[in-house]
């Protein structure tokens, strides 16, 4: 079920892109990532919309929490919260559903890129099980004739880790930037500390993954983060990243993050 519906179509799409993009696997991974990000765009937009609405209602939620501090009023508070959610048109699970829908695609992508570049005979046997006999409408190209793929892209052998560690660094930096752009303005110090710790932990974790994994996967992470940054910019501007960039430029006039459109020139 997983193989038939998710993994094999993604793997063979990747091989198809490789065949039409001058047998350049790096380019195929980048185009593949952009295509998948475009396909999941409605879900990402839903997620962003839900997050934005949820941010907007935060002050009112805080007011409710202050008003119904007594444990006896918990039920009442829950009722009021539900009213608030309705009023703002927010589904409490609104940003989780798109995330859950996208997750299988991320896993499938990850698996497809790892499988397309076998490094030993056992991995080639695995690839043989999932490759389509033909691309159907494009009968002149037989997927098998593409194997083994040319793994060279720029300075990388995409089947092996990056010897110069540039991809892990780019993965960490782009992931951090994307998270920074997405992070909402928070005044609660505890929440802020948690948010900051997450912003650092995730990039480090993914940098470590790409440090030891095939650089083709790292290239996918970098590409997907860059597309994410572009998407986020057009949805809500530079967000909290603008603060960091200003501080980096030595400006003393860094203003607190103001949510939507912050740091982005309005036309």
């Amino acid at each position: 079920m997983w193989n038939t519906l998710i993994f094999q179509p993604l793997l063979n799409l990747l091989l198809f892109l490789y065949s039409i993009l001058g047998r350049n696997f790096g380019l195929a991974v980048i185009v593949f990532t952009v295509l998948v990000r475009l396909l999941t765009l409605p879900f990402t937009q839903m997620q962003a919309k839900s997050a934005k609405a949820s941010q907007a209602m935060q002050p009112k939620l805080k007011e409710l929490e202050a008003k119904y501090r007594d444990p006896k009023d918990r039920d009442k508070m829950a009722q009021e919260q539900m009213k608030l959610y309705k009023e703002y048109g927010v589904n409490p699970l609104g940003c989780l559903v798109p995330l859950l829908i996208q997750m299988p695609i991320w896993f499938g992508l990850y698996q497809a890129i790892g499988t397309a570049l076998p490094q030993n005979p056992l991995q080639l046997v695995n690839l043989a099980k999932h490759i389509y006999p033909s691309f159907g409408f494009l009968s002149s190209v037989v997927p098998s004739s593409l194997i083994p793929l040319n793994p060279r892209f720029l300075w990388l052998d995409l089947g092996k880790p990056d010897p110069w560690f540039i991809i892990p660094i780019l993965t960490a930096v782009t992931m951090w930037a994307q998270q920074k752009m997405m992070s909402p303005a928070v005044s609660d110090p505890q929440q802020q500390a948690m948010s900051q710790s997450l912003e650092l932990t995730m990039p480090f974790m993914f940098a470590w993954i790409t440090y030891s994994a095939a650089s083709g996967l790292g290239l996918y992470f970098v590409a997907t983060n860059l597309v994410g940054i572009a998407q986020q910019y057009f949805t809500s501007g530079w967000g909290a990243l603008a603060n960091v960039l200003r501080r980096g430029a030595g400006s003393d006039t860094a203003a607190p993050a103001k949510g939507k459109g912050y740091g982005r020139k309005k036309r």
Partner: peptide, 22 residues
């Protein structure tokens, strides 16, 4: 969920590296 995803990716990387190639 995000940490879970990262953990699964990290685990699959580690197991792929540890798996015998032949």
């Amino acid at each position: 969920l995000t940490l879970g995803l990262a953990a699964v990716l990290a685990t699959s990387c580690a197991s792929a590296a540890a798996a015998h190639p032949s």
